[in-house]
């Protein structure tokens, strides 16, 4: 059974009334979930599009120990799945490309980009994170 937006809003308002204005959002979410499931519905928050699918991570800069570790740690902290990884080293310079699935992550693409910007700053490297579609459109007919 599917609920309309209006019905979900109603259930949410009831939950807020029941728990009081100062209730933490998690508690309200939990109560709404219980109510929806009790009524035979499926509870699932619709994630926005930017948090689905695969993204391409490109990173380059001067090579030094710890780059892969710091990037993969940030990705694993965000619960992202690394599906492919490839890198090349030319003299002191490295380039690394990863295919990352962010569908399972609680964060959306922008949050993950922010996390990685911090890594890029710490490691003094460049990291770009772009949705896969742009490569598919540009390089595949």
């Amino acid at each position: 059974m599917k609920f309309s937006e209006e019905e979900i809003r109603k259930i949410t308002f009831e939950a807020i009334n029941e728990l009081g204005d100062n209730a933490p959002p998690e508690a309200i979410k939990e109560l709404v979930r219980k109510r929806v499931e009790a009524l035979g519905g499926e509870y699932q928050f619709k994630k926005n599009e930017a948090s689905f699918g695969r993204v391409i991570l490109t990173s380059f800069g001067m090579n030094h120990p710890g780059i892969v570790a710091s990037v993969t740690k940030a990705l694993s902290d965000a619960n992202c799945d690394i599906q492919d990884l490839s890198q090349k080293i030319l003299g002191d310079f490295y380039t690394m490309i990863m295919v990352v699935d962010i569908s399972g992550s609680p964060k959306d693409l922008r949050d993950i980009q922010e996390d990685l910007n911090k890594v890029a700053e710490e490691q003094k490297i460049k990291i770009y994170l772009q949705h896969e579609d742009v490569f598919r459109y540009m390089h595949r007919i």
């Binding site: 490109t58 490309i97 490569f135 540009m138 390089h139």
Partner: peptide
């Protein structure tokens, strides 16, 4: 890898440089 190394770098070069 679903895309060639060069393809990905080409896109980055276009947008960044």
């Amino acid at each position: 890898m679903p895309y060639e190394f060069e393809e990905i770098l080409e896109t980055i070069r276009m947008t960044e440089i």
